[in-house]
Amino acid sequence: MHDLAIFYEHPAWFASLFAALDARGVDYVRIGIEGHRFDPAGAPPPARVVFSRLAMSSFLRSPDHAIYYAHALFAHWAGQGARVINGADVLAVDANKARQLALITSLGLAVPATRVVHRSVDIIAAAAELRYPLVVKANVGGSGAGIMRYDTPAELAVAVADKFLPTSIDGVLLVQEYVPARDGVITRIETLDRRYLYALDVAGGGAFDLCPADACVADGKPITMTKVDPDATLIDAAERIAAAAGLDIGGVEVMIDDRDGTPRFYDINALSNFVAKPLDVLGWDPHERLVDYLVAEIERGK
């Protein structure tokens, strides 16, 4: 049995991780999600430690995504004794924005005012309880997918009547007040082992896709990233969110509401494929810290 298995979907996002593992001589195997299958009555785990690199945006790249498949797979491997990093419990939070917001508010932290519906016909009634402009977003999203903005009740009414709305692969939608982010930036706070790793201010010129990773930046999207040292209260909040979500590695996103100065947390992302050109942006490579963590998890399991 291998020490480590990387269960991944995107063909380009993890070259830096693989290179860091190779450089350290870690015994690992790469397992692509496409075409994967398992026997629930057998199929032992491929390694002592399994690291999930499953992106919620995978449904954009293939209708045969593994988001729900992985719930059963990770639980099966864990039941057979494997240490699954960002396993089934974390995936259940990562793949459910409504659950993320409920978790965040349970910690006494602010989120954008939101109503959750499971039928599009209920969107108008939900929106009547909120301030415009607002957005309707998919409960399962990624890379800004499934978000549409509506500035007036009339505009939303036309969209509902014409069914010009986002869709979510689980049928659940969020109706949410559009938060004007101070200075047009959101802050993404990355955590490792539930502790602060680094943070970025990300600006996208009003776009909803603010993915900072290599493959996203390579797509030519107008994203600017700046290393920041957030206020200690924001770091503490992100660490509490990570702990409550059981997040082994992941990002927490927050924006300062320009209307009243309130920090509003709105997304928990378990992928954390790290910033593009980390030496230029951060001055150090977070993959080294990640490999330290993976090696420690391997040793702990021996």
Rank of each mutant, 00 (worst) to 15 (best):
G246H: 04
L290K: 10
H36I: 13
D122G: 03
Y198M: 04
A15Y: 12
A15I: 12
G220W: 09
A244D: 08
Y198E: 01
F59L: 14
A215T: 07
H287T: 11
V175G: 04
G206D: 04
V26R: 00
I147V: 14
L4P: 00
A213G: 12
K227R: 13
G25Q: 08
Q176D: 04
A128C: 12
V228H: 04
R182Y: 06
A102Y: 07
L54A: 13
L4H: 00
A157H: 10
L107C: 10
R131A: 09
I123H: 07
R99T: 10
L134V: 06
D229F: 13
I169Y: 05
A126W: 06
L91T: 00
V228L: 02
A237E: 05
A244H: 09
S143N: 11
K97V: 02
R240V: 10
I186A: 09
R37G: 13
I123S: 05
V202M: 01
A218M: 06
G301K: 15
Y150H: 11
D162H: 11
L234M: 01
L17I: 08
L73A: 02
D170P: 03
G204V: 01
L103R: 01
G171V: 00
S272A: 14
G141F: 08
I104P: 06
P133F: 03
L107E: 02
I67P: 07
Q100W: 03
V90P: 03
D236K: 14
F7L: 11
V136E: 00
I189Q: 09
V179K: 03
V111K: 02
D248R: 03
S120K: 10
K137F: 04
I33E: 14
D267Y: 05
A75K: 04
P40H: 01
P166Q: 00
R83C: 07
P180F: 01
H2M: 12
D89L: 15
Q80R: 06
A296E: 11
A128Q: 11
I147D: 05
L210A: 03
I31C: 07
I249D: 10
P180W: 03
E9D: 08
G87Q: 05
R195K: 15
H65A: 13
P278V: 07
A70K: 01
A95E: 09
R131F: 08
V295T: 12
T167E: 13
A270P: 03
A232M: 11
V179D: 02
K97F: 05
R289G: 08
C216T: 13
N96Y: 02
L17H: 08
N273F: 08
F14Q: 10
L290D: 04
G251C: 10
D162I: 09
W284S: 14
V158R: 15
T233P: 05
R240P: 13
L247S: 03
